[in-house]
């Protein structure tokens, strides 16, 4: 199931999707800023990965990054002032902001908050 590395092969993109890089960037920055420890991160991620495996999720990069994202949410709400409700509210705001932003324009949260009337 594993294969030898081909040193001549073109380099694969390091991340499949931008959010995957951002999850690790935020986690690393939180560790460096002392919001949680590297050990907390490893243990939480290890537990998430074990849970994913036990529930029969495929052994893929996608599953790995999903576990990493869940770990970051868990540690952020456990070790900072950010609550699960903050996360839910903010996600709903972002969703609304995207839905209200015409294609090609920058998306910002003001659009979710400023008015209940979507842009035309």
């Amino acid at each position: 199931m594993f294969r030898p590395e081909n040193p001549f092969a073109p380099r694969d993109p390091v991340f499949e999707e931008a959010w995957q890089a951002q999850v690790l960037a935020i986690a690393d920055s939180m560790v460096r800023a002392g919001r949680f420890s590297a050990n907390d991160w490893a243990e939480t991620l290890g537990a998430e990965l074990a849970r994913a495996e036990a529930s029969g999720k495929p052994d893929t990069t996608g599953t790995y990054y999903e576990a990493a994202l869940a770990s970051l949410e868990t540690l952020t709400t456990a070790s900072t002032a950010i609550t699960p409700l903050d996360l839910a509210t903010r996600k709903a705001d972002w969703t609304r902001a995207y839905q209200r932003t015409p294609h090609g324009q920058p998306v910002d949260l003001a659009r979710a908050r400023s008015s209940d009337t979507p842009d035309r």
């Binding site: 959010w19 951002q22 935020i26 994202l69 950010i82 996360l87 903010r90 995207y98 932003t101 090609g104």
Partner: peptide, 21 residues
């Protein structure tokens, strides 16, 4: 459809974490 493409659920959750942090 005619507005900005809504990012994936995961991407929205990451944006959420980053903007709050």
């Amino acid at each position: 459809h005619i507005h900005s493409h809504l990012p994936s659920d995961a991407a929205l959750r990451v944006k959420t974490l980053e903007s709050l942090a």
